[in-house]
C-alpha cells in the first residue's frame, strides 16, 4: 500500500498539465435527409495558414472511400496515421454525430478552424462544407451546410 501512493502522485503529475492546457470540446453534426446511403463525414482541424493539424473524427470505416472526402484528402495528403481510435461508423441521413475531443487551449481563439467534409455513395462530394473558426465566443453557434449538413455546432 505504501508503494502505491507515490505511483499515483506521479500519474497525477503527468496528467495534470494536460488538463490544464486542453479543453473538452463537444462537436455536434446533424445531417439532412439528403436521400442517400449513410454518409462519410470527417471533422478536422486547420491552422491559420490553412495547413492541416489533425483529424478530430472520421465517420466511415473503409479507407478506400476517403478519396471522396476531397478537402480532407488534400489537406492531410490522405494520411491514415492517427485515425486509430477516432474512426466510427458512417452517419445515416437525419442522424446526429456527436464527437467529444480535447483541444489544446493554445489553439482556441488563435485563428484555427474546424472543417467538415461529407460524401455519400453515388452522390456529390462536399469538401469543407463547414469551415468554422475555433473561438470560445462561437461555442453554441449553429452553422448550416449546403449539401449534407443541416446543423453544425460545438460547445466547450
Amino acid at each position: 500500500m505504501k508503494k502505491l501512493i507515490p505511483a499515483l502522485v506521479i500519474v497525477a503529475a503527468l496528467a495534470a498539465p494536460r488538463f490544464a492546457q486542453a479543453r473538452a470540446v463537444t462537436l455536434t453534426t446533424t445531417l439532412r435527409n439528403f436521400g442517400g446511403y449513410s454518409a462519410y463525414v470527417v471533422l478536422y482541424l486547420m491552422d491559420p495558414q490553412g495547413q492541416y493539424v489533425r483529424t478530430l473524427w472520421m465517420a466511415g470505416g473503409r479507407p478506400y472511400y476517403y478519396r471522396h472526402l476531397g478537402g480532407w484528402l488534400r489537406a492531410s495528403r490522405g494520411d491514415l496515421n492517427g485515425l486509430d481510435g477516432i474512426t466510427g461508423a458512417s452517419v445515416g441521413e437525419g442522424r446526429t454525430l456527436t464527437v467529444h475531443t480535447d483541444i489544446a487551449d493554445a489553439l482556441i481563439d488563435a485563428g484555427y478552424s474546424i472543417h467538415v467534409d461529407a460524401a455519400s455513395e453515388g452522390m456529390m462530394e462536399s469538401p469543407a462544407e463547414i469551415r468554422m473558426p475555433l473561438k470560445a465566443a462561437d461555442a453554441g453557434k449553429v452553422e448550416h451546410g449546403r449539401a449534407y449538413i443541416a446543423r453544425f455546432s460545438y460547445t466547450m
Partner: peptide
C-alpha cells in the same frame, strides 16, 4: 454537381451541349 455558398445539388447533363436536362436525384 454544383455548390454555391448556400445550396448544392446535382443535374443530369446533355453531353453534347453541356446544358442541364433535369435535376438528378438517385
Amino acid at each position: 454537381d454544383y455548390a454555391t455558398d448556400t445550396t448544392a445539388g446535382s443535374d443530369i447533363i446533355d453531353p453534347a451541349t453541356g446544358a442541364v436536362i433535369a435535376p438528378y436525384a438517385p
